[in-house]
Design a protein around this nucleic acid. Sequence first.
DNA 1: GCACAAATTAACCTGTTGGATAAATACTGT
DNA 2: ACAGTATTTATCCAACAGGTTAATTTGTGC
Lengths: 235, 235
Amino acid sequence: MAKAKRILKWQRDPEGMRLRILEAAKQEFATHGLAGARVDRIAAKAGANKRMLYYHVGKKDDLYLAVLEGAYEKIRAEERGLDLEHLDPPQAIARLIDFTWNYFIRNPEFLALLNTENLARARHLKRSTKVKSMHSPFVEMIRTVVRRGVESGDFQVAVDPVQLYISIAALCFFYLSNSATLSVIFGRDLLSKEAKDERLDHMVALVLAALTGKSVAAFGRNTAARLRSPAEHTA
Amino acid sequence: MAKAKRILKWQRDPEGMRLRILEAAKQEFATHGLAGARVDRIAAKAGANKRMLYYHVGKKDDLYLAVLEGAYEKIRAEERGLDLEHLDPPQAIARLIDFTWNYFIRNPEFLALLNTENLARARHLKRSTKVKSMHSPFVEMIRTVVRRGVESGDFQVAVDPVQLYISIAALCFFYLSNSATLSVIFGRDLLSKEAKDERLDHMVALVLAALTGKSVAAFGRNTAARLRSPAEHTA
DNA sequence: GCACAAATTAACCTGTTGGATAAATACTGT
DNA sequence: ACAGTATTTATCCAACAGGTTAATTTGTGC
């Protein structure tokens, strides 16, 4: 009842207000970067007064860190639900790639936030205590898959789990994060349904071929035509 | 003589001034992003008056596009000198990876500029006519290597050259561009000499294993210890 | 030396921005 | 109903930033 009243009058709802502020801030920082983000716009988007940001979260930098922590928390939480332990190792890796890829597609702000934070040389993240502890379980998860793969003979070589994850994230991240410039310079729409499907196939095939030593058919899919030069196309 | 005089008095040297402005702008945009960059700071760094920027190049956005075009021109020019035609295909790919990696290390501003431009959804690049034409020869170069590799039997599968290049760039780019946040969350210095060497080995091994089907020893280098969990390390 | 254009400087202006102050309003327990 | 606290609003401001105007200096062709 008190809760319902709070929701009806969404003023005087501190927790809700805080969430709306963080959501608005996430959008704003993702769209405009740190320096380009406007505190007033965040307030407007959150349906709040500018003063509220400072009251509920803090100054611009604090806001940014809070958004960033929330973003990491969200992806790592979803990853925990992947249940890689019960899949055979190649499938587990394929699933991790698939998840990462689709998570990045579903959450484009995450990519922008990370880029922005790296431009700032992780100056905010370094101040965070939460974020560091989030990642050891995640690395453990991958480490276990790799070890199982090596033991079962599915994987030819033992690969450093961190290195492997960075590579998987890299393949997904770069394509999506840089799709705007890549689309221009290569003159292709990289975000069409077909292009995205093709990319996922390519990434899974690339990583699994390297791990298992068995080439995956999909690696070469759709590429016969791509090997012909433009001149040959018209000829 | 007239040239020498010009160089001595670096005022009244329009071309030189333009170059100094673009260099200063590159540093400023790379360090602070588009919105964070300060026109006054660029002027100061270039040893010029703010009005000079507008006189020689244009407004902030024009300045940014000029810097970006210069950056693309530089990397594509260096790539043209790689001479991949005379190497056997696996070596050619290894060389391309090695070059890309080291170019990114030598030119960190390039990474930042691309990220910034992607945050702006390639709004400047789309206006550029120069940049688009720069890239067909580059794609041709890779296409030829892949085709030769398939014909010689070195490569198991035909892979789309654009897809392959994006993957190579991704592996290098993401690691370096995101090294600040990655170092924090994984608690490792990813930019130490050893870490960088290890990364290059990993990337070359990953891509060549996938292309040739033969696993590369370096893929698993240094990783035996990494497969032990932290608990086991102390045990 | 002189006219003319190119290059450079200095000063200014207007809108904006992050952040602060202080007052008002609504909810809580009593 | 009331006192006290948590939440919210309205307003202000000083610093700054991008861009412009207009005057000044320097080199060039004649």
